[in-house]
C-alpha cells in the first residue's frame, strides 16, 4: 500500500503531507504526555517488528501478495491511535528514504493511510468489539482486518483524485486485494498481541479479560 512518487501529483502530495503533519504533531504531544520510561523498549521493539513484517510479502492468491501494515497492532498494544501515527511515521520515513518503499512527496499520504486511518480504525474497532465481546481474538482480528481494508479504500480515493485509477475499478481491486491481505493482518496482529501480552503484561495498555470461574463451596 506504499504509494510511490509517480502515483500522486506534487500539489496533492503536499496537501496529504499537511494533513499528516497535523496528526504527527498530535502524536508527538501524545508521546510527550503518555510515554513513560518503561514503555520505551516496547515502542522501539514494535517499530522494529513492524518494519520487518512490512518487508515480508505473503501470497494472497490472484497473483497478489500482501504484508502486515501494523497500525492496529501499535494502537491496540499502546492504547492510543496516536501511538500508531508515531511509530508508522518513523517506520515509513526509514522505508521511503532508505529503501524507496513509498515515495517522498507521497509519504504524507502513506502516513495518513497506514498510520492515521489504520491506527484510528484499528483502535476504535478493537475498543468497541472488546466492550461487546470481551474476546481479544475476535476484537483484534476484526480491528486489524478493517485497519487494512479501510486505508486501502482511502488510498483508492486518493488515486482517483490523482487521476491514477478510475474510482470504481480502483475501489473494487483495492477492496478485494486488501480484504484478503487483511486476513494476514488479522492473524499476525492477534498472534503479536498474545506474544507481547505474555512477555510484558505490565507495559501493555489494555487488560485481557479475566476468565469468570464458578465459585466452589468448600
Amino acid at each position: 500500500m506504499h504509494i510511490p512518487d509517480a502515483f500522486i501529483p506534487i500539489p496533492q502530495g503536499v496537501v496529504y503531507w499537511l494533513i499528516a503533519l497535523v496528526f504527527i504533531a498530535l502524536a508527538l504531544r501524545w508521546a510527550r504526555s503518555e510515554m513513560s520510561e518503561e514503555k520505551i523498549p516496547l515502542i522501539a521493539v514494535l517499530a522494529a517488528g513492524i518494519f520487518a513484517l512490512q518487508s515480508f510479502n505473503l501470497p494472497v492468491s490472484m497473483g497478489t501478495s500482501g504484508h502486515l501494515v501494523g497500525g492496529a497492532l501499535a494502537a491496540i498494544i499502546l492504547g492510543s491511535p496516536f501511538a500508531a501515527v508515531f511509530i508508522l511515521t518513523l517506520v515509513l520515513i526509514v522505508q521511503g528514504v532508505l529503501f524507496g518503499d513509498g515515495g517522498i512527496t507521497t509519504m504524507g499520504a502513506n502516513i495518513l493511510n497506514m498510520g492515521v486511518i489504520g491506527g484510528f480504525v484499528g483502535y476504535y474497532t478493537f475498543k468497541a468489539l472488546m466492550a461487546a465481546t470481551t474476546n481479544v481474538n475476535i476484537a483484534g482480528f476484526a480491528a486489524a482486518w478493517l485497519a487494512c481494508l479501510i486505508p486501502a479504500l482511502a488510498c483508492a480515493f486518493e488515486m482517483y483524485f490523482a487521476g491514477t485509477f478510475p474510482l470504481r475499478e480502483g475501489l473494487i481491486a483495492m477492496g478485494i486485494y486488501h480484504a484478503l491481505i487483511g486476513i494476514i493482518e488479522g492473524f499476525v496482529t492477534v498472534f503479536a498481541i498474545k506474544l507481547i501480552v505474555t512477555a510484558r503484561p505490565d507495559i501493555v495498555d489494555f487488560a485481557l479479560p479475566v476468565p469468570v470461574t464458578q465459585g466452589v463451596k468448600a
Binding site: G63, T64, S65, G66, F165
Partner: peptide, 9 residues
C-alpha cells in the same frame, strides 16, 4: 507477486 496497490495498477 505485486502487492495490493501494484496489482490494482
Amino acid at each position: 507477486d505485486p502487492d495490493g496497490l501494484e496489482s490494482t495498477a
